[in-house]
């Protein structure tokens, strides 16, 4: 029998209806006390993950994701059910929430100073995110940066870090105590695992931070740290490319992002050493001024 669960993920909340033990178990690993049986809570969105019905499900079971009555994606193979739910949550927020300018980007902060790391898949962004989150930084988000319109303020939307392919082994070695989900194999992004950020990130789930930098990271196995200051026009256009709801918010998003870019430092970095990157970020961006 399927049950209703509640996930409290400031500033949004979800109810999840599912009967799949693997989904329940992974949610519990990743979200800890923020995941519980639904009682009187009122969730923003009603999601569900179900096993597909019919004869096919005996031969090759599939998982289906619903946001209320809507089924935005085609069913995926059963073992990806939890990852499917995570992407479904992203889709739900990206499609419905327009009170913030939302950038496809990681956000990490020291104190209340935050840096955006927008980057395409394969750039090593999530490995860097995981490293920083375990080394004195707090994670505000791995995938979605919520910026309050016409400010430089980022609202945390703490979620697990999504690691792919070879990063999975690296992360398991680097963070032996980390809370990892099961591996979802052969997704459109390759093999995928979710890693819960450390408790300190969760504890500060409701504390906003001010943007001081935008950094586009690129991992290159054979390259020592190289840093380029990005000019503001290029940095702006790259942010626009990574904004989820830019086309909906139009003027608001335009003025918010031009304001952010005017007031922060913008860099592109190439690296093969996470510790060096962390040192650079702290010295040149966080301690700057």
């Amino acid at each position: 029998m399927s049950d209703n669960y509640f996930i409290d993920l400031h500033p949004f909340s979800f109810s999840v209806n599912t009967a799949l033990p693997q989904v329940i178990q992974n949610l519990s690993t990743i979200y800890g006390s923020r995941f519980r049986k639904l009682s009187t809570e009122v969730a923003d969105y009603e999601l569900s993950v179900q096993k597909s019905s019919g004869i096919r499900s005996f031969i090759k079971p599939q998982a289906r994701f619903f946001c209320d009555q809507q089924e935005p994606f085609k069913p995926l193979s059963f073992q990806k059910a939890y990852a499917f739910l995570e992407w479904g949550m992203n889709w739900t927020v990206a499609g419905n929430e327009v009170q913030h300018v939302i950038i496809h980007s990681a956000v990490l902060a020291k104190g209340n100073k935050a840096i955006l790391f927008p980057a395409p898949p394969g750039s090593g962004k999530s490995t860097l995110t995981a490293y920083l989150a375990h080394n004195g930084w707090r994670l505000l988000s791995d995938e979605m940066a919520l910026i309050i319109p016409n400010t430089q303020t980022v609202v945390p939307f703490v979620r697990p870090i999504c690691l792919k392919n070879q990063s999975i082994d690296i992360a398991k070695t680097l963070f032996p105590d980390g809370k990892f989900s099961d591996i979802a194999k052969d997704t459109h992004k390759g093999d995928v695992i979710h890693l819960s950020p450390p408790e300190s990130s969760w504890e500060n789930q409701t504390n906003t931070a001010e943007l001081v930098g935008v950094v586009f990271p690129n991992y290159r196995a054979n390259q020592d740290l190289q840093i380029y200051q990005l000019d503001k026009t290029q940095a702006f256009m790259q942010l626009v490319d990574n904004a989820f709801n830019y086309s909906v918010l139009r003027e608001t998003a335009f003025s918010t992002l031009t304001n952010v870019i005017e007031n922060v430092q913008t860099f592109e970095i190439f690296h093969n050493d996470l510790a060096q990157v962390a040192a650079f970020l702290e010295q040149e961006i966080i301690d700057f001024e």
Binding site: K232, S247, R250, E251, E262
Partner: peptide, 22 residues
């Protein structure tokens, strides 16, 4: 239109189409 303070360029929002150009 916004002209960036580092003189690197200007960006424009087409209010009809919602498209951004630089």
């Amino acid at each position: 239109m916004h002209s960036f303070s580092d003189q690197s360029g200007c960006v424009f929002l087409d209010v009809h189409s919602g498209e951004t150009l630089s």
